[in-house]
Design a protein around this nucleic acid. Structure first.
Lengths: 230, 230
DNA sequence: CCCACTTTGTGCGTGCTTTCACAAGGGCGT
DNA sequence: ACGCCCTTGTGAAAGCACGCACAAAGTGGG
């Protein structure tokens, strides 16, 4: 959803593949911790819930890193995927909004451990500013511009209420942030060169409800119930 | 496919459309609160960041609810989308795992307002059980089976550590839950009739990092040599 | 009543994604 | 060295999704 139609030729890795690479990476890290040296596409596919042909095609976009008859070297593949995703360098992340969700994100282990460093927590509420959360002191939102410049923040995470999100987004972009992860339930308006990914908890629930309804409708036998007719 | 000309409606709504319906719904509810009675596909498309033709095609899967020359009746469309998503009934949700994330979810306003009722919060840690969170008393995980049966829970939200997730998932399925929203960073193993949606915070960040890396690589002019396909 | 204007609903071409099926490559036991 | 068995990498085909462009349908003014 972040790709734009007017983009010049995109000679790189398909978006659908990029979205799956982190999944493979996590599975591989699990194998690595268990000391498993090699893995076949079938095994890795089973561990990630992906079709094995799709997995092979995904990996083929990175290069030919497998060995026929054997499989893939776990450590080498971890390195290659990490490199492709840009995780061999550290990215500084600022979290704006230290409510329940912001705190959850700050304490979420997955962030700090691999490739991401939480550079700052920012909030507007006086009762939150100054408190320590996840080893960091929450700073006031007014220092956003300073923090982004000084800490070289390139990814902003918006966990504010919906009303504040666009304003925060604009300020992030104004100081050079070009990647934004948005948890606020609004559609952010951004220029073309900025990537936005959105995570919306209630949308996910609504999609589940749709399928759940379909299942229980079938169970009950009452098919189309076309009551209203203009 | 296999659309019968005699039937006005084809009930098979594409998955991509289903994923966007909640987006339209939220925008429409905003219009409704502002007292706007009708909206054109162009306006609604602008508000949701979607191509207007795509929006019309999405809505056409629900039926012909628009008026040519005028647009769509906001209230009527809200009702139709809600009905299609199954939000005209209330769904009971159980949240398992009341850590930082679980608390954030419990306090997330968007749940209760839109067809979802948090029926229970469950956790295994003694220091959490018994505490009140978001107006509910946290119950011990051992009462999961009782809660699901008595409260008619059909959607389970897993916000536990990764290690506990599969076990909780199995127990949910064993008592009849068929829709699961999983925040734990593991691939859940479930039978075919169970729907799982996964929200993974670090995966989203990694996808952003990929695009960010590509942008800064271009800016910096690294030793990347682009090779045109033959 | 008629005409100009607006907006929906959709046929169709295009490009991306997934899946199948298999040739090519590599290891291993004998 | 040889042949068997395994697994990768990839054409090719099928399936989806997207967006253009336009006919159909409805509104409102004169």
């Amino acid at each position: 959803m972040t790709s734009r139609p007017s983009r010049p030729r995109d000679r790189g890795i398909p978006e659908a593949t990029v979205a799956r690479l982190p999944l493979y990476l996590r599975a591989l890290q699990g194998l690595s911790e268990r000391g498993i040296p090699t893995v076949s596409s079938g095994e890795l596919a089973a561990a990630t819930g992906v079709n094995s042909a799709k997995l092979r095609k995904d990996l083929s976009h990175l290069g030919s890193y497998g060995t026929r008859g054997v499989g893939y070297d776990v450590e080498y593949l971890i390195y290659q995927i990490s490199r492709e995703l840009g995780l061999t360098q550290d990215w500084s992340v600022a979290i704006i909004g230290v409510g329940n969700l912001g705190r959850a994100l700050a304490n979420y282990g997955g962030f700090g451990t691999r490739g991401f460093r939480i550079a700052a927590l920012l909030d507007a509420a006086p009762e939150v500013v100054g408190r320590r959360v996840a080893g960091l002191t929450v700073r006031h939102i007014d220092s956003l511009e300073d923090v982004v410049s000084n800490e070289d923040v390139s990814i902003g995470v918006i966990a504010t209420p919906a009303k504040a999100a666009q304003g925060v987004c604009d300020r992030l972009i104004a100081v050079g942030v070009t990647s934004i992860l948005n948890f606020a339930p609004v559609v952010l308006n951004v220029p073309d060169h900025v990537d936005v990914r959105k995570v919306d908890l209630s949308i996910e629930l609504q999609i589940l409800a749709f399928h759940e309804q379909r299942k229980s409708a079938g169970r009950q036998g009452s098919d189309w119930v076309d009551v209203l007719d203009a």
